[in-house]
Computed example of a mutant assay.
Amino acid sequence: MPEIADKVAVVTGGSRGIGRAVAMLAARRGWRVCLSYVSDAAAAEAVVAAIADAGGQACAVRADVGAEADVEALFAAADRLGTVAGLVNNAGVVDVAARVEAMGAERLHRMMRVNVVGSLLCAREAVRRMSTRNGGRGGAIVNLSSVAARLGGAGQYVDYAAAKGAIDTFTLGLAREVAEEGIRVNAVAPGIIDTEIHASGGQPDRAWALASQIPMKRPGTADEIAAPVVWLLSDEAAYTTGAVLQVTGGR
Rank of each mutant, 00 (worst) to 15 (best):
M1R: 15
E3Q: 15
V8P: 03
R20N: 09
M24I: 15
L25Y: 12
R29I: 02
R32T: 09
R32K: 13
Y37C: 03
A41C: 13
A43F: 08
A43Q: 12
E45Q: 15
V47C: 02
V47F: 01
A49Y: 12
A52R: 09
D53F: 09
D53P: 08
V61R: 11
R62A: 13
D64E: 14
D64A: 09
A67T: 15
V71C: 02
D79F: 04
T83N: 05
A85D: 06
G86A: 13
N89R: 01
N90R: 00
A91Q: 00
V93Q: 00
V93W: 01
V93L: 07
D95W: 04
A97T: 12
E101L: 11
E101K: 12
A102C: 11
A102N: 14
M103Y: 07
G104K: 00
E106P: 06
V117S: 13
S119K: 00
L121H: 01
E125L: 08
A126N: 00
R128Q: 13
R133T: 14
N134P: 10
G135S: 11
G136Y: 08
A154N: 10
Q156G: 13
Y157V: 15
A162G: 10
D168Y: 05
A175C: 03
E181F: 10
V188T: 10
G191K: 06
I193P: 02
E196G: 14
I197D: 06
Q203Y: 13
R206M: 15
M216C: 10
A222R: 01
V229Q: 02
L232P: 02
S234H: 10
D235L: 11
G242M: 03
G242I: 07
V244D: 04
L245I: 13
V247G: 01
G249H: 03
G249W: 03
G249N: 05
